[in-house]
Design a protein around this nucleic acid. Structure first.
Lengths: 216, 216
DNA sequence: AAATATACTGAACACTGTTCAAATTTTGAA
DNA sequence: TTCAAAATTTGAACAGTGTTCAGTATATTT
């Protein structure tokens, strides 16, 4: 017919067909992702297996390999979804707080709250080893930059308001990321401190300690 | 012969036999532990399997279950040994530092150094889930209290020297534990920061930031 | 309708942990 | 030293993993 189609190797209405194919493919990928998310939130990472996911998705375990490199690949595709969910939780829980340090504090506590509620998601974010394919793309930066993104606005507010210097903010950002990661790691994996009240006390003490002398 | 033996239900030279039995048993346990330690330090936690350990120990995999509840149990028995090894490394590396903050800094950096060198041991200490039997005894406290023990002397020195208050020391201790745990977790599991030099810079910045304003 | 292309599936293989009955070794009394 | 009893060691067996691949079934095009 026309040259353009021949150049692309496409004839007649194949463009629509290609589009449908991609759509259907995305749908099936979605079934697997949804199944994985369900398992992660309920039974946790330990129950994630190729056969488990496939059964929940309504396919054979072998079909999973037609859409994903392996189960780990699939698991890390859930990260974005959980991040938006966590972000929603954090914004809701920190909405009422006054801008600045107060809000920052609320954000950080809500962040901890989310992962305490879903330890499996903390595992996925910080503990589970990335597969070789997931090492390549921006999965790791996506995860490590998540807390920064949650706090971004507030740090901007504090910096532009001259409440804190850019350098100090960078240091505190890092310290809070390391501290909260360790706090969650020790609480979730080593029961330290023992019990949620003690954990909350340790968390607030740490956060307040970090946010205290920022105007230096 | 004498009543003591009869009271214990022991006759003739059975005491020595019992002792021999215990000795032999401990020896075999030692073979398994040594094999596990070797695997942990070389191939890492992922290569630890019942069959792997048993082969290195020179026994059948089934024999392992005659001496340990399971492989996890065995793995956590290596914790003490690695702690003493780490302690030796830390004391050696911090020997030359002047007492007080300087030495504390050296200890913390040597602590990080050790786990960066043996990521599998970090996994074992902070990431690997404790089995039900290991939840009972003081394995978790042993791990979480390890850094405290390493720094104990120096904190005492700073407190008695009135350089820092007891309350402040407690806060800083906790902050350092959380921060270093998170730092190692992110570096080992998420390649963040990327590269050892960047990690070292992040570590020193964090540690110095924590040790800076202690006299408050 | 037939041929072709695509998608799906279960068998098979190599691992994992764990149990248990059988085989082996050690032991101690005769 | 011999031999039966006790203790220890062992591999087969089972239920799980992940992964591959040839064959089946479905869908599409001719």
């Amino acid at each position: 017919m026309n040259s353009v189609q021949y150049i692309c190797g496409i004839v007649k209405g194949e463009w629509f067909i290609m589009k449908n194919k991609a759509l259907q493919e995305q749908r099936i990928r979605g079934y697997f992702i949804e199944a994985t998310k369900e398992i992660l939130k309920s039974e946790g990472l330990k129950s994630v297996s190729v056969r488990n996911i496939a059964e929940k998705a309504g396919y054979s375990f072998a079909t999973l390999y037609n859409y994903f490199k392996d189960a780990k690949d699939l698991v890390f595709l859930c990260v974005q979804d959980f991040q938006t969910e966590c972000t929603e939780h954090v914004t809701a829980r920190s909405a009422k707080a006054a801008r600045g340090e107060k809000k920052l504090r609320a954000i950080l506590l809500a962040y901890l709250e989310y992962f305490v509620q879903y330890p499996g998601i903390f595992e996925l974010f910080y503990v589970e080893k990335l597969s070789d394919l997931n090492k390549q793309p921006a999965t790791a930066p996506l995860i490590t930059g998540f807390l920064d993104k949650l706090c971004e606005e507030e740090w901007k507010y504090l910096i532009t308001g001259k409440t804190v210097s850019t350098a100090m903010a960078a240091n505190k950002k890092a310290a809070l990321l390391y501290g909260l990661s360790g706090l969650l790691l020790l609480y979730i994996n080593r029961q330290m401190p023992a019990g949620y009240p003690a954990f909350l006390k340790a968390a607030t003490t740490f956060i307040d300690g970090q946010l205290k002398d920022m105007n230096a």
